[in-house]
Nucleic acid binder design. Structure first.
Lengths: 213, 213
DNA sequence: CAATTTTTTGACCGGTTGGACAAACGTTAG
DNA sequence: CTAACGTTTGTCCAACCGGTCAAAAAATTG
């Protein structure tokens, strides 16, 4: 009885390259059409190969999506993982907002892939949400609670604070076409991320009420 | 040459009822699988009728989606339309957040339908985004700018403010499964909307920095 | 009631889908 | 060179897709 089940798959150079090519193409397709709305043919064409050829590297459509998801989750949670207990609370939160916004700017397809999955009820990543994600969020929420107890930031709900940061930052990736449509051609350039960063920083730190002098 | 093109469609009682039934079922299906991910069979089964029967009331799949979208947009923009120039600025913004959050609570499927459409590049409603929506947002942004000039609220970017309100409120509908997974079974009840309302109100009005006494 | 119109159904169609498969092709090590 | 192995392709398939159609069933009208 050989222990093959956990053995790391041995891959040739070509296999590695082609698999990357396929995943890159699949990210493009899945993120704009969702899982069911995407076809293997579409992905194959985007990757510049035939459908049977693609199926030589990934046996099933779902395998591609699964691999994509597994890779995504690590990078996706990284910004929150960096939230440091021992740092300055305001600076830490500001930094977290900035990092999330940078992710929305630099990896919009990953954001939309994730959004698609959640929108459709997270059928493929539910366990991860209830496990890894919840654990991390609970842990960081506890840190934020500590800051609140210490009077460093206003006492409020840390979980909803994290939701609000997720929502506002990912909005610029997930709802990009709407943002562009509303802002118009002039303000749709790269500068809008600077505007968003400035606005969100102000919003989260100071709110809208006029400051007392 | 008879002028039939703009004539209001004459519908029997059964037609009205069945069309409503289909639209209700289609809302359920489209909002969770997206347009391409949904099948006529699925909608027909959810509506309790056969596929050819459904196609007797809506000739094409796209017609159902289109009808759904047209109805959605009016109710969707209503909360923003209510933003009143002559009201108290802080109260107006607070009211707008509350109304949007109530919509996310009471019409989550409509929110997800809209999110699906935008996520996939808004292929069917782009003209509306650049027309009706942009016009309304620009108009309200001007009102908010007036409040800022008058010193009633902090000077910031009104467009990004509106985006932030959209993002944070719709998050509770669009990412509902994630919110539930993170909050756990205890706090996933109806009370979480009260928590969200309280949090968002505080966030937008006061921010996170400790208030000066 | 009978005539007419509206509604429902089953059978069907061409196109697309995810995937299987064997044969052909390319690469590399002995 | 050649045998073994890795890669690519064309062909094929069964299931599913959106949609048509004629005919049956039901409802409406006179």
């Amino acid at each position: 009885m050989t222990m093959e089940s956990a053995a790391p798959p041995r891959r040739t150079r070509i296999q590695q390259e082609k698999r990357e090519l396929i995943l890159e193409a699949a990210l493009e397709v899945f993120s704009t059409h969702g899982f069911r709305g995407s076809t293997i043919d579409q992905i194959a064409e985007a990757a510049g190969m035939s459908k049977p050829n693609l199926l030589y590297y990934f046996r099933r459509k779902e395998d591609i999506h699964e691999t994509l998801m597994e890779r995504l989750l690590d990078t996706w949670l990284a910004p929150l993982r960096e939230l440091d207990d021992s740092g300055d609370p305001i600076a830490e939160i500001r930094g977290y907002i900035r990092r999330k916004l940078e992710m929305a700017r630099d990896y919009p397809r990953e954001s939309r892939l994730f959004a698609n999955e959640i929108l459709q009820g997270a059928p493929r990543i539910m366990p991860m949400l209830e496990g890894e994600l919840k654990t991390l969020v609970d842990e960081k929420a506890e840190i934020i609670k500590g800051w609140m107890r210490a009077g460093k930031i206003v006492k409020t709900d840390p979980w909803h604070l994290i939701f609000a940061i997720w929502a506002t930052t990912q909005h610029y990736a997930d709802f990009d076409v709407q943002v562009r449509a509303v802002l118009g051609p002039d303000r749709s350039g790269e500068g809008r991320f600077e505007d968003a960063a400035r606005f969100l920083e102000n919003l989260f730190i100071h709110g809208l009420a006029p400051h007392k002098a």
